[in-house]
């Protein structure tokens, strides 16, 4: 037999233990790299759903330049941003019936909801798990400082940090992973609290 195979017996434990260590360290490195660069956003942020009414932020937030907080009223005070009530839509749409055919038909749907006193069954796009107690109010309060926006700023600049350029989206979709790693990275980078009980209770 070949003499070099004789050493195999003794080297076996070394090879096995070394292999184990190498696997673990290699796995760790690959994992970390994958976590940062190849996070599969597509798996989390699904394609934009078709809403009951083809409401478009491009018109409202983009072309008309309505402040986010005008419709999402509780965002500066509460945990949730809030979906405007149908009546709030009717502030304008009682008058504005739409000119183009496709838009007018959507507005007509809205008016029908209002006439029937029914809420609109919006499909939620940004959904966090139940065990995450995210609070919009704190983020709206803190983010201008974090982003260095100064005294005069557009609220859009704040909201877009997580929600992207909503005013350019025909159909709203999620643009950030909004997984815990995402939150924690940002909190760490900005010296925000990372105590678990800030979000989980």
């Amino acid at each position: 037999m070949r003499p070099d195979r004789k050493l195999l017996l003794l080297s076996l434990p070394v090879v096995l233990i070394g292999g184990l260590v190498a696997t673990i360290i290699g796995g760790f490195v690959i994992w970390r790299v994958a976590a940062h660069y190849f996070y599969p956003l597509e798996l989390i942020a699904k394609a934009a759903p078709t809403q009951p009414i083809r409401f478009t932020h491009v018109t409202h937030a983009g072309q008309l330049g309505i402040d986010c907080t005008f419709c999402h009223r509780t965002v500066t005070e509460e945990r949730t941003a809030g979906i405007p009530a149908v009546q709030q839509c009717m502030f304008c749409h009682a008058v504005i019936k739409g000119v183009e055919e496709d838009k007018a038909s959507e507005i007509a749907k809205l008016q029908e909801y209002a006439a029937n006193d029914e809420p609109i069954d919006w499909i939620r796009v940004h959904r966090l798990p139940d065990h995450v107690q995210f609070t919009h109010e704190v983020h709206i309060r803190r983010l201008p400082e974090v982003l260095g926006l100064g005294e005069d700023f557009q609220i859009q600049a704040v909201c877009s940090t997580c929600h992207g350029k909503i005013w350019e989206m025909e159909e709203v979709r999620q643009v950030r992973a909004l997984k815990m790693g995402d939150c924690v990275d940002c909190h760490r980078a900005n010296n925000a609290p990372t105590d678990c009980v800030i979000c989980h209770y």
């Binding site: 994958a34 996070y39 790693g181 924690v184």
Partner: peptide
Amino acid sequence: ILPYDLSRG
């Protein structure tokens, strides 16, 4: 030796 999930550290 691996942290939870991916990047939570």
